[in-house]
């Protein structure tokens, strides 16, 4: 992939990866409310990805209400984007992280209690 940004891979659809990459910046507060996000032109050149693919990725965030368009100005982070992206991820946390962890634990014969102990002991 022409992408030399961390976190991009060759197997997942690129527009989904772009959406997640931008969403990460919002969740971590690196892109703040009412801050302009990089334009499609900028993003496509920097990531070396077709602008149509970039637009598709950004549109996912528009549909989620995380970014909004100012006519003739570009895309901006919505006021409640950080909270709403975080809530969304909290809802998916069980599916995305807890369940795969328990599946792997089951494969390895690690009991639920042992997992719970590990979680508590983790700093």
């Amino acid at each position: 992939m022409g992408v030399n940004y961390p976190g991009f891979n060759d197997t997942e659809p690129l527009f989904i990866q772009i959406a997640r990459w931008l969403e990460n910046k919002i969740v971590t507060g690196q892109l703040k409310a009412d801050e302009q996000i990089p334009s499609t032109t900028e993003l496509s050149a920097a990531l070396k990805i077709n602008p149509a693919t970039v637009r598709k990725g950004v549109n996912i965030l528009v549909e989620k209400g995380l970014v909004y368009k100012k006519r003739g100005m570009g895309m901006y982070v919505a006021a409640n984007a950080e909270d709403s992206a975080r809530d969304d991820r909290r809802e998916r946390f069980r599916d995305d992280y807890v369940r795969p962890m328990l599946e792997e634990a089951a494969r390895l014969g690690i009991s639920r209690d042992e997992v719970a102990e590990m979680v508590k002991g983790e700093r």
């Binding site: 992939m1 022409g2 992408v3 060759d10 496509s44 050149a45 070396k48 077709n50 693919t53």
Partner: peptide
């Protein structure tokens, strides 16, 4: 990508470095 963004010319790119170029297409 930059030239394409400016001119909107159609680009047809033949290559054997498929994964490296996949994002362009």
């Amino acid at each position: 990508i930059e030239r394409f963004n400016e001119t909107e010319a159609a680009f047809v790119i033949s290559t054997h470095l498929i994964d490296e170029c996949a994002g362009l297409f």
